[in-house]
């Protein structure tokens, strides 16, 4: 019964080794999908390349459906999985700041690491920027703490928030994603091609 390491099926000593192996797979897939290119990533905001949208939502759907199946078949206990906590205003304000950073810099942290690995100088500068941002946050923590710790709603899921049925939600979310993928292709055909 999973998750394997917290339940002691795999000894804890393997944790760091598995972390590196998972990281290698993560980095390989991101880079091979073109996420080491800031111009490809930024394309989603201007309609000339929707790779971010397609990769991101396909990954979300595969993991969502996969977790439901693994729970249903008894391989993993869904109640033991870590649910990212909801700090309402932290998520909104932090997300909004990240959105501006994304369009300005053309990367997010994971993709910038991939670009650093293949020698992109803009990505190296971007990672230095991220570390400065974290440093600013930490030094001014007393200012940010009310947002950081405030409006805490717990480790809630959409089922808790809206009372939706898990399975129906994933089904409808899948349909929406497919429709969005089709619309994205229509929009992209109307934009002029950009080579990078």
């Amino acid at each position: 019964m999973g998750p394997l390491i917290p339940n002691g099926v795999i000894p804890y000593e393997w944790n760091s080794i598995i972390a590196i192996l998972i990281g290698i797979a993560f980095g390989f897939v991101l880079e091979a999908s073109g996420f080491s290119s800031s111009r490809k990533l930024a394309g989603v905001f201007y309609g000339y390349d929707f790779a971010v949208l397609k990769v991101f939502f396909t990954a979300a759907l595969v993991s969502l459906i996969g977790i439901l199946y693994m729970d249903y078949l008894g391989y993993v206990d869904i109640s033991q999985l870590y649910v990212h906590p909801t700090y309402l205003w932290g998520a909104i304000i932090g997300g909004a700041i990240m959105g501006v950073g994304f369009v300005a810099g053309g990367f997010c942290p994971g993709t910038s690491l991939c670009a650093v690995a293949i020698g992109k100088i803009d990505a190296i500068i971007y990672v230095i920027g991220i570390m400065i941002g974290i440093f600013i946050f930490s030094e001014l923590y007393f200012i940010f703490q009310p947002i950081y710790d405030g409006s805490f709603l717990g480790n809630i899921t959409l089922m808790d928030s809206f009372g939706v049925n898990r399975y129906w939600f994933v089904f409808i979310f899948t349909i929406i994603a497919i429709v969005v993928f089709v619309i994205a292709d229509i929009i992209r055909k109307k934009q002029k091609k950009i080579f990078y």
Partner: peptide, 14 residues
């Protein structure tokens, strides 16, 4: 890139 990184780092902590 530097400015975007600073914002992303800050936002990711919040």
């Amino acid at each position: 890139a530097l400015g975007g990184g600073i914002l992303f780092g800050l936002g990711a902590q919040i």
